[in-house]
Structure formats: structure tokens, C-alpha cells
Design a protein around this nucleic acid. Sequence first.
DNA 1: TTAAAAAATTAACTTAGATTAATTTTTTAA
DNA 2: TTAAAAAATTAATCTAAGTTAATTTTTTAA
Lengths: 244, 244
Amino acid sequence: MPSHLFGLIGLCLTCPYKQHCFCKNLLNRSSTEIESSPIKNVALLAKQYLYRQGDMNEALFILREGWIMLTRHSEDGKRHVFRSILPGELIGFQNQLRGPTTYSAIALINSIVCRISNIVDLFSIRPELGLCLASALACDMKLTEMYLYNIAHRSAQERLAFMLLELHHRLSLRGLNNGYSFKFPLNQEDIADTLGLTVVHINRSLQAFKEEGLLQINKRELFILNYTAISSLAGTDFKIFPPL
Amino acid sequence: MPSHLFGLIGLCLTCPYKQHCFCKNLLNRSSTEIESSPIKNVALLAKQYLYRQGDMNEALFILREGWIMLTRHSEDGKRHVFRSILPGELIGFQNQLRGPTTYSAIALINSIVCRISNIVDLFSIRPELGLCLASALACDMKLTEMYLYNIAHRSAQERLAFMLLELHHRLSLRGLNNGYSFKFPLNQEDIADTLGLTVVHINRSLQAFKEEGLLQINKRELFILNYTAISSLAGTDFKIFPPL
DNA sequence: TTAAAAAATTAACTTAGATTAATTTTTTAA
DNA sequence: TTAAAAAATTAATCTAAGTTAATTTTTTAA
């Protein structure tokens, strides 16, 4: 058994997301396959880009630890935040497998990413991975559709409530919450750019929530103080089934 | 060769989308596979639902002819239109392969849909289909992200211009335009619910476009009279690469 | 052919959120 | 430790789009 195989298995054995459909599938394979699709861990510092809009990318990434945000800058200088990527989630797949990326991926806090390169070969060796990928994409799609709906049809406070509970829910699925509180590395501009609102208005809405005792933010930690009240603003439909 | 095989091949041979990655893959297969995953054409009348939000669905559909709209009704009665499905596009895949659908699919004009049932078995027999599916989903995702960006950050006229050129572009890829004009079965409420605006405001915006000579609508056909002007409102970024 | 229903149009008025701009607080890095 | 930069806060003012409601036009179906 070649030495790099030990390295790979060690890397994955300590990974909390080794049960991910994608990873399970990769873990039982021969060494020749490993040659053609190396897996590496990549450490990112806070505010460091994994890739930038326009970069060429033909790798897939799974976030192992940390918090990544997908952002897009438009010609006129506005920034949109597509979504927050939480540990265990997969990014980097695009329709054009080898084309330029249409958004940037930036780490908000120190993060560790698992990089799976040479995916074109990988899919031909392991075609079952296609369905894993499709399942993960279908989850991302559902999430994006929920944001689309909220941004298109609901008020600032409703959008904000939706976003906070949606994040709390996704973090809970991974055990990354602390009851009703969780580490929250986004600043008010990040929230604004996710929800299509201005920083000023996000600030007003957060103030209103704090004054009514719905939540509290302290040292990058968010405390949901009145889940029921926030929930009635958010609507019931913010829960997503995890992928295969 | 069993008779239903002739039927299937006849069905697909006349289909303009038989080059779709998904279809190409299905077309060379043994008759036992056909037993386990039947393909049928389904005709829909205008305003008929293919499926309704909440229905159980475990089939995939490819639109062969017509125009389908994906809509979601929320608890509070508002309707959102996720997107228009154009011929050659695939719908029906969800993360929970056998779960209830989270939106409805309704035909706006008489349509023909190709129904591929029993997809769970199909993917185990033909795992390569997974990547076809992932590629199609990645396209849908890009489209949805473009709408998300436009709705979150841009004015009513900009959103409208984006939507019209985006549709024109997708139709052109399929040769379903007529130069700068195309069949346009959406009413003003459909546009409003796609863009997160009110009918009244869509009407105002359309009037403005017509008065400035940018476009014209006649008997469900839309004529782009000044592509350059609409394009400068829409932004340059409305083009999508088709899937594999 | 015609009555009823659906869709489009228009105007008057309201409002949620944007804009601008200044101030305070917190974080960062030298 | 401290100066500089970044982020949060607040207030005053503005405006794009929403709301309501009535009218006209088009489509549908009997």
C-alpha cells in the first residue's frame, strides 16, 4: 500500500463529514484511483479567498471546518452574497467543468477545506458520484429558492428572521449550535448583501429585534432569545433536508 | 425486440432534444432496462398542472414542446414563480427522491412532456446519468442565482429587461425565437410573481418600455425593438451555457 | 353572438426601505 | 499601548414601488 494512501485515509478518518455520500464513496477505492484524483486539505485564514470570481477551477471542495461565503461582484460594483457554506457542504461544481467561476469563495474565519481535484477523471472512474453531486446540488437549489422567495416577497424583518433561523437550523443539523446560540461571523454588511437590503436598514432591523428581546449579539455569537417570536416572522418553511 | 421498444425509439427519434446528455444515454440500452424505467410522452393542455405542490413525485420530466412554469404558493397566499421551463429542460428532481414536491409545475400553453419514471432504479443501472443530472441542475442553479441577484439588487425596469433578454437568449439557443421576437405566453401577473413586483408596477414598466419604443407585445408575441437599449438596462450577464 | 370572466390600464395616495451624512464603538495592526 | 481602520449606530430626508380602486380591453365559454 503506497504511503500517500495512508495519508489520505488518516486525513479522512478524522474528518467529521466522512459519512457524506461523496466521501463514503471515495474512501473505498484502489490506489490507482487515488493517483488520478488527489485529495488534499487546504487551510484558509480568515478573509482569505479559496477562489475568486473569474478564476479557473476544476476542483471540488468540501468545507471541513470554518465558514465560507459565496460572493459575486457585478459590473456596477454591487456585491451579492449567494449563501454561507457551512461545514460538510460541497462547493465548486459548475456546469462548465473547467470554466471560470462566476463567484468568489471567501473564508470568514480560519477554515479547513478538503480539495478534490481532477474531477473529470474521477467521475468517469466513479460514476455513482454523479448522483451524490446531484443530491447536494438539489439541496443548494432548495436553499437558494428559499432565499429567492423571501427576498422577492417579504419584508426586511421577515427576511432577517428567515435568514437567522435558516442558519441556526443548518448549524443544528451539524451539532454546531449551542442550544439557541451559535457562532456568527457575518457582519451587518454581509447580512445586507445576502438579503438585498442596505446596512443601515439591517442595523435598524437588528436594533428592533434586540429592543423587543428577540435576540442578542455578543462577541460574534448570536443568541436567539425568543425563538417563537422570530419563528412567526420567519415563516415555517426554512428547514432543508440534508443531501443523501 | 419487444414491441414497446419500437414505441419508445419512435418516440425519441422524432424528439428534437434526443441529443440531451440524459436522452443520449437512455437511447442505447437493453430491453430489460426499458422495463424497469418506462418513458412516456404526456400531453398537457394550457393551464393544466403536471404536478402540484405537495404531490408525491418520483419521476423526472423533460419538456419536449410547450412552456411550463414552476410556481410556489406560500402559507400567506402569495405566489412565487421560480422560473419558466423551456423545451429541452429537465424538471422534477428533488433531494428527497420520493418526497412531496415543494412547487407546482403548470403548463402555460399546450405542451408535451417526456416522463421518465422509476428513476431510483434507473440511476443504479445507469450511474453515468448522475453527472448529466448534476450538469442540468448546475444550469438551473446559475439561472436561479441570476434571478436572485437581479431581484435583490436591481430596479424594476432592470429586472424586467433582464428577464426578457434571459428568456430570449434561452429560446434562441433552441431556435425557438424569430429573430428579435418570440412567443410569450406569460401574463403580467406571471412576470410580477417572477420578479417580486406587483402587476401594477409591471404594467407601468412595460408601458414605459413601449412608449420609448423598446418593445411591443401583440397577440402573445413579444417583439424586442431596441435590443441595445434593453440590453444596457439588463446588464451583460444574462447568458447561460447549456448543460452537457 | 354575447355575457361573464380575466387581464390590462390608469390615477391618487402611501410607505418601506434607500440615501446621505455624521457620530460612536470596536477591531486591527504597528 | 495607541493610532488608524473598520464596523455599528442614529437621524433626517427622499423615492421607487406598493396599495387601492375604478375603468377599459381582451379572452373565454355558453
